[in-house]
Each structure stands twice: as C-alpha cells, then as structure tokens.
Amino acid sequence: MSRDPTNIALDTLQRNMIVRRPERTFVIDVAVQSRDPAKAARIANAIGDAYFAEETAARMDAAKRASDALAGRLANLKRDVEDAERQVVRYREDHRLVASSGRLLTDQQLGDLNQQLVGASIKTAESKSRLEQARKMRTSDPSTALPEMLQSLEMQALRQQYATLSRNTAELATRLGERHPAMAEQYAQQRDLQRLIQREKERIIDTLQKDYDRAAASEAAIRSSLDRVKTETTVSDRAYVGLRELERTLEARKGVYEAYLRRSREASEQERLNTTNVRIISVATPALQRTFPPSPKIVLPVALLLGLAIGAGVALLLGADADRRRSLRQASQPTGRSLRAADA
C-alpha cells in the first residue's frame, strides 16, 4: 500500500465525504465529516471550487483543441479557395470572358448593338423616305407645294421670288399682251428662277442622298458588328459552361471555408466565455452540532434503555435456566425413593 501523504489524505477524504443526489432533482449534495466544523465546511467548498476549476479547464482545453484543429483545416481550405479563384481568373483570361456588373461583356455588347440596330434601321428608313419624296418633287412645277424636307431658307426665298414674278408677269401679260417685247424679259427672269429652284432641289436631293448613304452605311456597320458579336457570344457561351463549373466549385469551397471560419471564431470565443450551466446553490457552512458520535443527551437515555433491556433479558434467561435445573432435580428425586422402598 502506498504511503504517499497525498494518497493517504485522499483516502481519508473519501471515507469522510458524502456525495448524493436527491431523488427527482439535478442537485448534488456534498458533505464532509471532520472534528472541526469550520474545516469540514472549507473542504466541502474547496471540493466545489475544484470541480468548477476542473470543468472550466476541461472546457477550455476542448475548445483549444477544436480551435487548433480548425486552424489547421482553415489553412488547407484557404489554399483550396485561392487555387479555385486562380483557376477562374486563368480560365477567363484564356477564353477572353470579360464580365462587367455580373454580365459578360459580349452579352452587354449584344444588347447594346441590338438597340443601336433598331435606331439605325429607323433612321435609314426615314432617310430613304425623305429621299424618295425629294426625287418625286424633282420634275414638279416650281410653284407646286414642296414637302417640309425641301423647305430650306434659300428654297423659300427663291419660291417667294418666283411667286411674285409670276404675279407680275400675269398682270403685265394682261395689260400688254403675250407678244409684247417687255414680256420676253419677264419670261427670261422666270426661267432663271426656275433653274435656281431646280438647282436647289438637286442640292437638297444630293444632301438627302448623302444622309441616306450614311444611315445605310451605319446600319450595315452595326449589323456587321452584331453578327461578329453573335459569333463571339456563341463561342463565349460554350466557354461559359466550363466557367460556371469552375465558379460553382469556387462557391462551394468558399462556403465550406466560411463555415469553418465561423466555427473557428466560435471556438476561440468559447475559450474566453463561461458557458457552463452548473452553479453552486448554497455554500457549505459549519454544522451547528456534531453528527457523530452523538451528543450525551441522546446517548445516555438510549444507553439506559439498552442497559435495562439487556439486563431484563439476562435476568429472564437466568430465571429460565434456574427453573429448568429445578425441574430436572425434581424429576429425578421420586425414582430414588421408589428404589429404596423396594429394597426394604
């Protein structure tokens, strides 16, 4: 047997310590017996403090082990996330998948070109309509009303002059007659104004033709760009399938990494927080009276009663034994007298 003082003290404490749980409760009662009531209370309180210290140390040790394990795992997960991010970036660069605001650049260009094509088509149609109307007015009479597109300031001035000259010529023809020499000059002025008006028409038609050509060229360029972007979009869509797979892998790794990161932070916080739900309901106090050996006020009456009971029992036993012996002697005496009578 070990004679180590610590073991001896622990054995002595174990013999003099009572730990029990009352029925239907989660309360643990700890009691210590000692000749010194104050010492017994100190030991009981020290047992509670030691339990809490051990519980806290075990919890902190478990949290530290979990934190260390998570930290090692986090380093691997971080490397996995960085590798996945590099793969996504490299794949984008290799396939020229440029994104902006969460959309591929080719998709944005395709949408913009579609809008531009609609506007260019409308502009081309309007330019063509104006040009066709202007061509129809080419052979019309100078006094015929012109469409709004032909109403330039110079054309308006020329037509105003032609209208005034026509009225003057008509009035002069009425007064002088068609064959009067002065009418020749009027007609010559009219022909000059007609040529100027026709020249202005041709200028306007040429301007409208150029506008139409520019609108048509712009529409054709936009269509060409649209066809090119459509081809690029088709290629990008095929490449985007692989990109989405890489992005899903990246998101999955990020999710695992973030989950481990939150768990690591929680474990670090648990090392500093007391999360135990065990507490001391009441501290141990010195006993007001001893429990063993019992008090003389209790021992003397009990001893007296026990002594009387034992004495009565012994007396009864002795009396019973004396009666038994007496009965035996009496039973043996008559047999002796009858023998002596027979001898006589």
Results as ranks from 00 to 15, higher is better:
343 D>T: 11
59 R>K: 11
126 E>V: 08
292 F>L: 14
130 R>T: 10
221 A>V: 02
180 H>L: 02
48 G>E: 10
136 K>D: 12
28 I>R: 09
321 D>T: 00
135 R>C: 12
134 A>W: 06
225 S>D: 15
271 E>D: 06
288 L>F: 05
78 K>W: 02
288 L>R: 13
47 I>W: 00
219 E>T: 09
15 R>G: 05
15 R>D: 09
209 Q>R: 04
305 L>I: 15
321 D>A: 01
210 K>P: 01
284 A>T: 05
137 M>L: 03
171 E>P: 01
323 D>R: 00
296 P>V: 09
133 Q>T: 06
224 S>Y: 00
339 L>W: 01
41 A>M: 00
294 P>W: 06
205 I>W: 02
44 A>L: 02
65 R>P: 00
107 D>V: 08
300 L>R: 09
197 I>E: 03
233 T>V: 10
230 K>L: 12
269 E>I: 07
15 R>S: 08
298 I>S: 11
275 T>P: 05
175 R>D: 08
117 L>E: 13
198 Q>D: 14
118 V>W: 09
317 L>Y: 03
14 Q>D: 12
121 S>D: 15
62 A>S: 07
137 M>P: 03
203 R>Y: 11
261 L>M: 06
332 S>A: 14
312 A>I: 05
272 R>T: 15
181 P>Q: 10
238 R>V: 15
217 A>K: 13
77 L>E: 15
104 L>S: 10
241 V>Y: 05
152 S>V: 08
75 A>L: 13
256 V>Y: 06
278 V>L: 13
189 Q>I: 03
304 L>G: 12
271 E>S: 13
15 R>T: 10
3 R>L: 11
192 D>I: 09
303 A>K: 02
5 P>L: 04
185 E>W: 01
94 D>I: 05
165 L>W: 01
183 M>T: 02
56 T>F: 04
74 L>G: 02
197 I>Y: 04
264 S>Q: 10
140 S>V: 12
66 A>T: 13
192 D>F: 01
236 S>A: 15
207 T>M: 11
175 R>Y: 08
49 D>F: 08
214 R>L: 14
176 L>W: 02
109 Q>K: 12
79 R>G: 04
264 S>K: 08
13 L>Y: 06
332 S>C: 05
50 A>R: 06
216 A>M: 06
89 V>R: 08
44 A>W: 01
42 R>Y: 00
184 A>K: 12
16 N>V: 05
97 L>V: 06
308 L>F: 08
42 R>K: 03
70 L>H: 04
191 R>T: 15
79 R>H: 04
204 I>K: 00
235 V>R: 13
170 A>D: 14
305 L>D: 03
92 R>G: 09
131 L>G: 10
10 L>S: 04
40 A>N: 03
259 A>P: 04
210 K>G: 11
137 M>S: 10
340 R>P: 03
339 L>E: 11
113 L>C: 00
54 E>W: 12
94 D>E: 15
276 T>G: 07
129 S>Y: 05
241 V>R: 08
144 T>V: 10
134 A>Q: 05
261 L>S: 10
17 M>K: 00
188 A>P: 00
185 E>K: 06
249 T>D: 14
124 T>W: 04
174 T>H: 10
